[in-house]
Design a protein around this nucleic acid. Structure first.
Lengths: 203, 203, 203, 203
DNA sequence: CATGAATGAGGGTTCATTCAT
DNA sequence: AATGAATGAACCCTCATTCAT
């Protein structure tokens, strides 16, 4: 039985598998957010996903793989949203871009604060995961450095400045999210933006 | 019996105990840095310290207590060194103070990068420990805010600015330390200083 | 599909679980009888049951729960057998009833003397267990007291007499069972019966 | 330096040792009563006795030895007090003797209920201890049997009757003491006495 | 493919006992 | 003799992973 000619989609089997993986990842998010990493056992995740542990292990080779996938998803989602924000901002000037990026970053991380704590602060960091994070950071740094080379040809080392900027934004957003004492988000964004603007704008 | 004989030295018993605690903490630093928190077992720590688990448990009631003590020591050491740097800087202007603080912070954390990752990113955070960290941050914020009220009476909310500043410095230093890709420390200090200065100085 | 097919039989899953629990309890009986409570480790029990510790802990949340279940089983078994003996004795007079009860009690406890020592003399007594024992004793006291009110309306305090009687029978049977020097069981029953009869019958 | 000629006492050294042993035993009583047997650690006992574990082990070869000694002391004390009661009762008739014995037994055990529970119900029973208990019981049985042979020459098996009697009294007294629900002691004594009297007196 | 019972290494912790001082 | 730090076997329990059904 030949598949419908122009069906540009995965075979039913694969589609099912993709959906199951998603169910597991959703469950893992819930369970990690609620129990933390070590107490977020694979059995609990399988339970939450409404399947047996055995099934879970058919889709992920081990617990770490789930974690890695979770982070990858988060990164992809974050990247997409930040890029969308930049697209919207268009060819704005630096301050506006910074504000757009910081706002988007905060939005990305505000979804589930506790989950991000678990993901980024209390979980083991397999090499694969570290590589992903580096790649992301490097990408952002490259983009910003390029822009700086155009806008601020006077800068000594645009790469370093770009990295400091990127790391500052990332760090502060994570800190905001991880913080037990909630800061006012809008003010936070405003202040971070002002700081970074100043750093990038003044010679 | 000359007074020097029984001078400022703890009784043999206590001195021994203090030394043993120190040995355990040193071993814990080594083991945590090498294996991470969960794999840094009490038996491994005792081994590294050249003693039996039982002995270890005569000095610490449980594994968490070791972690808490490690962080407390780190905080005390860090606080002392930052204060010393400030004292040396004397009544300098803000930029110089910022540079002194950042330099001291980097020095404090450069000792053992991996250990700080374990301590601050992948370990459980008992309430006692969180309280310590808050206290430290609040203290720094209070000092800086006070200074800002003097130097920059025009600032809207010195407390918020102070907190953003403190958190920025803390975060960036931790990021630098946690980073697998070593940045040039001096340049890093210079850039962070410049960023914070700008933030605090420009209206 | 004939009704006998799906008749009063538990689903395979449950039936298996029930059987496994029984295997664990049997193993626990053996191990406790042989090693006592503290030396009767969960690993030894699992071993004796031909399974791993992990499996054991899938059926019981902790060691005490095994003990409690063992005692509950013993109580249920004992209660059933004593009631059966009473049913057989029918509306006999007091002496015959006493003989029936004592005989049944001895039979219940004769199964495994050493186990009963462990269960009732050297194990911790979780509140749940104490409650069970009290309930049992109170039940027996209530039944006997009621009967005494009918048969011996002259008695001052049937409740106290009933309790003394019940406790005496329980105690002596346990003593007999715990004893290292086996007494002749029939004579023992005869003497205890005589003593209790006398106590209940003579004014 | 020859010791004082007619000093009928232990050498100072021995006297000191005896006193130290007593201190340890007192401490053990306190600690066992408070913490139970397994949680009544040798360190706690040494602490309570105001000495170091090492010293404790100079007087007792191991923990069990302390337990055995505690029971031995209890038995000696109990025997002495029951004998005293009998002496006071003089050549009374059986009922009076029984009352005297039961009263004395209750008094002996009322001192520290919890300690007796620990000693007789939740501690391991080393062979040495079992031997002591047998010896005591046998002694009491022998005395009573002898008396029965005089007073009740009609009895078939005075030895068995004596043993049942002795065991009944022992058991009930222990039960009373171990009980969580306190019975009125005087009524208890009266009832037990009545029961035993009846048993021994009526043919 | 799904199931979930089974596995068992390994974790933190305790405590009777020893031994250097 | 006294001390008390040190020892380390053993305990109860967890959880990532496997495998028979």
């Amino acid at each position: 039985m030949p598949p419908t000619r122009l069906a540009p989609r995965k075979s039913p089997v694969q589609a099912r598998a993709v959906e199951t993986r998603a169910r597991i990842l959703d469950a893992a998010r819930t369970v990690f957010a609620e129990h933390g990493y070590s107490a977020g056992t694979t059995n609990r995740i399988a339970d939450e996903a409404g399947m047996s542990v055995g099934s879970l292990y058919q889709y992920f080779p081990n617990k770490d793989a789930i974690l890695v996938e979770l982070v990858r998803d988060h990164i992809e989602d974050g990247t997409a949203r930040v890029l969308a924000a930049l697209a919207t901002a268009g060819a704005a000037d630096l301050p506006d871009l910074v504000r757009a990026v910081v706002t988007a970053m905060v939005a990305v991380h505000a979804d589930d604060r506790r989950l991000h704590q678990v993901l980024f602060e209390e979980s083991p960091r397999p090499p694969e995961l570290l590589a992903q994070l580096r790649e992301l950071e490097d990408g952002a740094v490259a983009v910003l450095a390029e822009r700086l080379r155009h806008d601020r040809p006077d800068l000594d080392s645009p790469a370093l400045v770009a990295r400091i900027t990127v790391v500052t934004i990332e760090s502060l957003v994570h800190r905001l999210v991880a913080s037990d004492r909630p800061l006012d988000t809008d003010r936070f964004v405003a202040e971070v933006t002002r700081m970074v603007d100043c750093y990038l704008t003044r010679r």
